[in-house]
Design a protein around this nucleic acid. Sequence first.
DNA 1: GGCCAGGTATGATGCAAGTCGTACCTGGGA
DNA 2: TCCCAGGTACGACTTGCATCATACCTGGCC
Lengths: 110, 110
Amino acid sequence: MPDEQGHPEPAEMELGKVLSALADPLRRLVVRELAAGPDGEARTCSSFALPVSKATVTHHFRTLREAGLICQVDRGNSRKATLRRADIEQRFPGLLALLVAEGARGDSQA
Amino acid sequence: MPDEQGHPEPAEMELGKVLSALADPLRRLVVRELAAGPDGEARTCSSFALPVSKATVTHHFRTLREAGLICQVDRGNSRKATLRRADIEQRFPGLLALLVAEGARGDSQA
DNA sequence: GGCCAGGTATGATGCAAGTCGTACCTGGGA
DNA sequence: TCCCAGGTACGACTTGCATCATACCTGGCC
């Protein structure tokens, strides 16, 4: 499977899955960093330097992708992830702001 | 408030705990019903008719309380739960709207 | 007083989720 | 060409969570 499947459309996004995905601090960190960056920014999984193994990183990014929060595109050797900012904002307005606000506070662990 | 332990102040609410609490469809149902009702409405745990045992209901309400989403007050024989609407709205603006919007759609917890 | 309804506390259980190691695939560079 | 780096797939392990049954406490009511 080269690139896109498992990328739900905006209407197919489920709040339960989104909240479950965002319940993990590592995944929240990823989304927060993406949300804090410029729109459309594409980053590799490894660029986040998560304190877990490669297999676990893959697992977290899969969870985010299946929840509809990020979009992963194969780019030859690597794979770039982008935040589905417009889709999220349309479907769950204000959600990203909550995550960014978390980072603006004490932030803390992961 | 003589009773309250386990009721975090607004500033003490953690997004992680809130999202984890809201990741469960039963708990989301409770908050959604409370949010859809009038402000300050006090309901007993049993009034939600959750399809689980009493012990499980207690567990869910404890989770919601410790996340800071509801306030439970002993009222003699029973115990009334109220949504901490203002606190939630101040700390996580727009969050309740997302839950209510979920109910307005296809709904049905799963 | 005795009884019952609403909640809580305490295990115990089953399943989902996070984690890892290892093997594997792909593409770029030496 | 060989090798390495970035990711994925698979299997295994462990912890956490939702669930339950049971026992218990409290306050209202007959």
